[in-house]
Amino acid sequence: MKKFGAIYRKELKYYFTSVTAYVTITVFLVLSGYFFFSIFRVYNLLSLQAIKNNDFSGNLNLIDGVMRPLMGNFSIILLILLPLLTMRLLAEERKQGTFELLLTYPVTDMAVVAGKYFSALTVYTVMLASTLLYPILLIIFTDPEIMPLVSGYLGLFLMGASFISIGTFFSATTSNQMVAGVATFGVTLLFLIIGWTAPFAGPTASAILSEFSILFHLDSFTKGIIDTRDISYYLFLSGFFFFLTLKSLESNRWKI
């Protein structure tokens, strides 16, 4: 546990002293801010029109009109930013040769992987928390439902956690950060778009495809529904790739 703490703190310190964290967080804030205000403007126009035409039949509440599209956009930004956050974690150790030294210290693989994983997860949490500004503005100036906001953020957190787990795994398999980043991007993108093909598949295939889709599971969170199935999907995805990362470190000690 102490050794986990040492690795965790070292990685976190790297994120914040090498400005990686600040750049990523700033980019995320700027992009999500842009999306927030443009979506909010569209929503404003729509509601003005609705008032003019006296037609309130549309989907006009702040959650459906603003927060849900916003969170959908968040997932796209995360898809690009999170691999940049995780690609260095173990690939750089392999490249520098410090990996060899690290594995000859009396440290469990678990402490190494967990330290790396949770440091990236912490940066992501800070990143996500900084965007709370937007829903807070909504709460100050309007009167949205709170529950979908809370569950939406929980969904985003869980989704990011699984992206980071996938990213940590690919970082453990190569000494090339670019390769780790691109592989992570490819796989998370695959999980994201798998749902898009669902409508065109047969009923069973469609159900299976959407079960695998990252967006499908995010959707109910943004509606304010906290379903154990969605939670377990993300936890399983994170856990599975965390396990693969452990195995990848362990494989160095396997006889071949």
Binding site: K3, G5, A6, K10, T17, T98, E100, L102
Partner: peptide, 18 residues
């Protein structure tokens, strides 16, 4: 091989903890 971005002091403390 060393973590070249770290200070000697921080590096040795880090390794010591490990």
């Amino acid at each position: 091989p060393l973590y070249s971005d770290m200070k000697v002091r921080d590096y040795l403390h880090f390794v010591g903890r490990l």
